[in-house]
Design a protein around this nucleic acid. Structure first.
Lengths: 346, 346
DNA sequence: CCTGGCTACCCAATCGATTGGGCAACTCGA
DNA sequence: TCGAGTTGCCCAATCGATTGGGTAGCCAGG
């Protein structure tokens, strides 16, 4: 009785209709319409017979055919820098879950933060006729978003925001502020920031939140203590090397806007014989599952990654429904661990 | 001139045909057929005019319509335990790349290694009418694969193999052997294995490769020195705790079949004041990007994850073309780092 | 002049679901 | 008893691309 979709013969609306001696359109209305329409379309008894047979035959509607007619695919396209970035992978899990709940499926593609690829992948998604896009790799000042907007492509941003467009992000400014408060209260007065990529709002906002709050607290941050870098371990390592080379006296605390950069920085510090959590405090961002499990557990700002993904889906749904939506920022919290547990001698 | 797909009016074959005063079928043959058919369908001059106009109008064929007619979607479904597992994420990047090259798009879904979810996601993929499946979460002895086979659903396995089905995997047995050779040659004689999940061929094969080779070398491994565990850091931590609690004398080397489990184990060792790479050697598996960047760099078996993904796509393509395909095992290599650099006193 | 074979196209059915418009048959109120 | 309304269903067009089967016009050979 489990014939269903693949390999063997596929059951169609017409098959069901023939078998019951009624018209396919009636079957369609019964199976795929809101209860009001379905009520008007058939008697309760007929409806029950139809539903029963559909179940028995393992009927599943052909999304190709339905989409062809309705011009909607119930497909969302998701573009991320790279899925092998744990942060994005987890957001995608949130997307996957929320999309399934709304009856949508998702495509994901990696753009590797390359503007060329962003365009290519976007077009490729549109060629697949996705209903809308969730863009997780937005670059500040990129023209692509304005173009998409002009073409009336429905989309929302995720993870990174760009002013003027709907987005689901962490409140990264607040996250940076939390770190500033923490390090300041631990007695640190000489800090450096591994700031990430300047085209990403995550990097910019976290850095700005930290630096602005630090100054508000009365601290100073020399220009060369803010080092832009890639988001991965290698980037963090290089940035830490630069800081060690150019900042004197040596900072007593490092804020990396990303856990992986923080891990890279920890490696660099260690190579220099500097003890993390003792000689130098390190704080990361995102609280990925690794942070707590590292040999020296890493303090990190926990961002609600799953919720960001879920929220992005909900926002996109509302955009698809024609609503106007405002950016959403979800609140982060700080997890203090050994890497920044001990303060500076005051 | 960039009208193209979304929002605004979509250009169809008929539009092109009308504008040129020829029949849609002719346009179709010109744009979407091999050169032989296209040659027969129109003069070179007409063909050029069609192609030119298609470019100018930004024509892109509607996959819904094409799929409805041809019964093929050029879609591959990919099922993985979780995309937030770096190993699978990287394999997926390989898939994404290879699939794009062949003109396919991919769906990914997470099954979380839950048999119920595996079924649900599989059906959901089939309901979307994917042409075939890449299954990255196969359980040894699961009935699902046999069912799919019986239903003639085209699929290949990836990452984990199950005898009797086509698969693209690492040669995990060889990987385990490499580790055994390495640790033995370093003088270790008392070792333990963090073996992973017994339903996954990766875990079973790596463990078997290690244990069998170890015995062949003349070593012994007591029963309680092989601890099955989850693949994540927490699982590795728990397994290491169990080993420390139950194995005496304490092993001088640990082989974890997965880098994350290895990292968890390193954390546990450290909590016990045991120095990794000095008191106890640790070796992981997969050589994820983190291994080399850890404060104490982790020795690990490098598995060709990208290639495994690419290979899976190529195998599936061949299955879709009706060929018979045999399992493919890609060769791993060992990367020795600080965590197992120093041997045991001989 | 007739036949046969090209060349360069056209025609129309088809895939499966959706949906606006019908329309019988029956009910009910006046 | 008539008209209006409701119930329960059918009809047929449609979405866009594909594809097996034509066919008109032309040229060459016999």
């Amino acid at each position: 009785m489990e014939e269903s979709t693949a390999g063997g013969r596929t059951v169609t609306l017409k098959d069901l209709a023939n078998e019951l001696g009624i018209h396919p359109s009636t079957v369609s209305r019964i199976l795929h319409s809101g209860s009001e329409v379905a009520r008007g379309a058939a008697s309760v008894a007929t409806a029950e017979r139809v539903r029963e047979l559909a179940r028995k035959r393992g009927y599943s509607p052909d999304p190709q055919a339905a989409g062809l007619r309705t011009r909607r695919t119930r497909l969302m396209g998701v573009i991320v820098p790279r899925l092998s970035d744990l942060v994005l992978a987890i957001m995608y899990e949130g997307i996957d879950e929320a999309a399934a709940q709304l009856g949508y499926s998702t495509f994901v593609m990696n753009s590797r933060d390359d503007p060329e690829e962003q365009r290519r992948k976007t077009e490729s998604m549109l060629a697949r006729r996705v209903d809308g896009l969730i863009i997780g790799d937005a670059h500040l000042g990129s023209g692509l978003l304005r173009e998409l907007s002009a073409r009336k492509v429905p989309f929302v941003l995720m993870n990174r925001r760009v002013p003027g467009f709907p987005s689901a992000t962490c409140d990264d400014v607040l996250g940076g502020e939390l770190v500033a408060d923490h390090l300041w209260s631990k007695g640190h007065r000489n800090v450096a920031v591994i700031a990430g990529e300047p085209y990403a709002s995550t990097a910019v906002d976290r850095t700005a939140g930290f630096v602005d709050r630090w100054r508000a607290l009365g601290g100073t941050i020399p220009r060369n203590a803010v080092v832009w870098s890639r988001f991965d371990t290698a980037g963090g390592r290089e940035a830490a090397e630069a800081i060690l080379a150019h900042c004197s006296p040596r900072p007593t605390a490092l804020f990396a806007v990303n856990d992986f950069a923080a891990i890279g920085a920890m490696g660099a510090l260690r190579s220099h014989g500097i003890s993390v959590g003792h000689d130098v405090a390190v704080v990361g961002f995102n609280d990925t599952s690794l942070a707590a499990e590292l040999p020296i557990p890493l303090s990190s700002v926990r961002s609600p990654m799953l919720d960001i993904g879920r929220t992005a889906v909900q926002l996109l749904k509302r955009v698809l429904d024609g609503e106007h939506v405002d950016p959403v920022r979800l609140e982060p919290s700080l997890c203090v661990r050994e890497s920044s547990a001990c303060g500076n001698a005051v």
